[in-house]
Amino acid sequence: MTRNEIRTAFVDELTRIAPDIDGKTVSDKDHLMDDLGLDSMDILNLVTAIQTRLGVSVPETDYPRLETLEKAVEYLAGKLG
């Protein structure tokens, strides 16, 4: 999977959980909670959806490594690599 594909998958799941967010305007450095307004239940749902979609396992202690789009893509690429 390329980074671009991971990014698309992540934004896709993000906007499904939080449809108030416009996927086109999400920038790489936006913080999921502080900038995009997700709450902790959203994060939980997002990680669950990503795990299912990409077939990776993300332990709870790694959640902070998905706090921006940039970090998430980097982290998930490492997992899938």
Binding site: A18, P19, D20, G37, D39, D42
Partner: peptide, 19 residues
Amino acid sequence: ERTLRGHARKRLGPAVAPR
């Protein structure tokens, strides 16, 4: 479904809007 959830989240915030 997404449109309506998006609408509710914008108006109410994630803690109150339907999941």
